[in-house]
């Protein structure tokens, strides 16, 4: 297998109503990389992700996942390889119980009941949701829903995890828990968000989208330090890098200190001095 796993070449997408959502997007992602895709609302992040598992087809351009060019024949394999976690977990949990939901993918892959059981329990263990297995999904909290949604994808043993705005709508504690969970994964990860603090913790590389175009692609720190760029793309420097006015009046940038984000600074102002 080639050493890069996601290859997007000159991707264009125009919606039927003539909205041009992606303009000439190209990038390469390697095995094990964790890439953030950031951009304001409507920048085209979700549209881009929906191409990666073939839900939307490119108006022009091509997509190569692993060794396979995305096409009708490779679609089933690509959908297994690319584990897509949608923005609203409600959409992803459509079966009567958590167990059924997590088993849905493996069963579609044609696994036996026993194999499926193993996969389901592993996936639930991974996200710390084993005790939820018999609950109907709509009885779960927001954070639990998100973790179960991730388990529904993990049970298919994807090589690439794709998450669309994973921290959206989570309370601070659930958000923290989710970030810790994602940090523990060794999959190739592609995460979209405008929660730049999360991207800072999860991704060493960031791609900036603005009005469907790639404005920048590089190390997360470089990009987040480029205030000009962030401003034109209607984004804001992560709180963790803004230098907290309460505890560091000299605006000492936190960036130069290796543990980028001290464990207590998940949110700008939960100080514990």
């Amino acid at each position: 297998m080639s050493h890069h796993i996601v290859h997007v070449k000159n991707l264009q997408h125009t919606y039927p109503d003539k909205t041009v959502a992606l303009r000439d997007v190209s990038f390469l992602i390697h095995h094990g990389e964790s890439v953030g895709i950031i951009g304001a609302n409507g920048a085209g992040k979700s549209t881009l992700l929906l191409h990666l598992n073939g839900y939307l087809s490119a108006t022009s351009g091509e997509i190569i996942i692993g060794d396979d060019q995305l096409s009708k024949e490779t679609l089933p394999e690509i959908r297994r390889t690319v584990g897509m976690v949608f923005q609203d977990p409600e959409d992803q949990l459509f079966m009567p119980t958590v167990y059924d939901d997590v088993a849905f993918g493996p069963l579609n892959l044609g696994l036996s009941a026993d194999e499926t059981e193993t996969r389901v329990m592993e996936a639930l263990q991974r996200v710390g949701a084993v005790e939820l297995r018999d609950k109907p999904p709509y009885h779960l909290s927001g954070g639990e829903k998100k973790r179960v949604a991730i388990a529904t994808v993990l049970s298919m043993l994807p090589e690439i995890l794709v998450l669309d705005e994973p921290t959206n709508g989570l309370d601070p504690q659930a958000r923290r828990q989710l970030i810790a969970l994602l940090q523990a994964f060794h999959h190739t990860r592609i995460v979209t968000s405008h929660d730049l603090d999360m991207i800072l913790e999860l991704c060493e590389r960031t791609i900036v989208l603005h009005e469907g175009k790639i404005m920048a692609d590089g190390p997360t720190l470089d990009i987040f330090n480029n205030e000009e760029l962030l401003k034109t793309c209607r984004l804001e420097k992560p709180f963790a890098m803004q230098g907290c006015p309460v505890c560091s009046p000299d605006k000492r940038p936190l960036v130069s200190q290796p543990p980028l984000v001290p464990p207590h600074s998940s949110k700008p102002h939960d100080h514990e001095h």
């Binding site: 929906l50 598992n53 959908r79 409600e90 959409d91 459509f94 059924d100 088993a103 849905f104």
Partner: peptide, 23 residues
């Protein structure tokens, strides 16, 4: 719209018109 998104999520997990069950 929601039904469409649910359908999308089903396709993403290999749905091919058949709901299997083990239990």
């Amino acid at each position: 719209e929601r039904a469409e998104r649910i359908h999308m999520a089903m396709l993403a997990r290999g749905f091919a018109g058949e709901i299997h069950s083990t239990r």
